[in-house]
Amino acid sequence: MAGHRIYKVSFASIYPHYVAKAERKGRTKEDVDQIIFWLTGYDRDGLEGILKDGTDLETFFTNAPAPNPSRTLIKGIICGVRVEEIEEPTMREIRYLDKLIDELARGRTMDKILRKA
Rank of each mutant, 00 (worst) to 15 (best):
31 D>T: 05
95 R>V: 00
5 R>E: 12
37 F>K: 10
6 I>E: 09
20 A>V: 14
79 C>N: 15
52 K>H: 10
71 R>E: 00
32 V>S: 02
77 I>D: 14
81 V>L: 11
36 I>Y: 06
23 E>K: 13
64 A>D: 02
56 D>K: 11
25 K>G: 15
29 K>F: 01
73 L>A: 14
26 G>D: 03
47 L>Y: 06
4 H>P: 07
106 R>P: 02
104 L>C: 02
33 D>T: 01
106 R>Q: 13
35 I>R: 00
78 I>K: 07
9 V>G: 08
41 G>P: 08
45 D>I: 04
117 A>Q: 15
104 L>R: 02
86 I>G: 06
43 D>M: 01
111 D>Y: 11
98 D>Y: 07
65 P>D: 09
82 R>K: 15
80 G>R: 14
60 F>G: 04
73 L>S: 13
112 K>R: 15
33 D>I: 03
28 T>D: 09
34 Q>H: 12
33 D>F: 05
73 L>G: 10
94 I>M: 11
7 Y>D: 10
4 H>Q: 15
27 R>A: 01
23 E>A: 09
105 A>F: 11
79 C>A: 12
1 M>C: 15
24 R>I: 03
81 V>D: 08
53 D>Y: 03
82 R>E: 11
37 F>R: 12
7 Y>A: 07
95 R>I: 00
101 I>K: 07
106 R>F: 10
7 Y>F: 13
83 V>G: 04
116 K>G: 06
31 D>V: 04
97 L>C: 04
93 E>L: 01
41 G>R: 07
2 A>I: 07
17 H>L: 15
59 T>D: 11
87 E>G: 09
62 T>V: 14
6 I>P: 06
13 S>I: 11
112 K>A: 15
113 I>K: 07
115 R>G: 03
42 Y>A: 00
89 P>Y: 06
13 S>A: 15
114 L>F: 06
20 A>K: 15
106 R>M: 10
70 S>G: 05
74 I>Y: 00
33 D>R: 15
52 K>Y: 08
68 N>V: 00
53 D>F: 03
104 L>D: 01
97 L>Y: 05
10 S>R: 11
53 D>N: 14
45 D>M: 07
28 T>Q: 11
110 M>H: 05
64 A>R: 12
23 E>N: 10
93 E>I: 00
26 G>F: 00
79 C>F: 14
113 I>E: 00
59 T>K: 15
69 P>A: 03
22 A>C: 09
104 L>K: 02
97 L>S: 06
105 A>V: 10
99 K>D: 01
107 G>C: 10
30 E>Q: 15
31 D>K: 07
114 L>I: 02
10 S>L: 05
101 I>T: 03
22 A>T: 08
18 Y>P: 09
75 K>Q: 13
52 K>F: 12
84 E>W: 03
71 R>L: 00
46 G>C: 02
104 L>V: 02
110 M>C: 05
82 R>C: 09
47 L>D: 10
30 E>C: 02
83 V>A: 01
47 L>T: 08
15 Y>G: 09
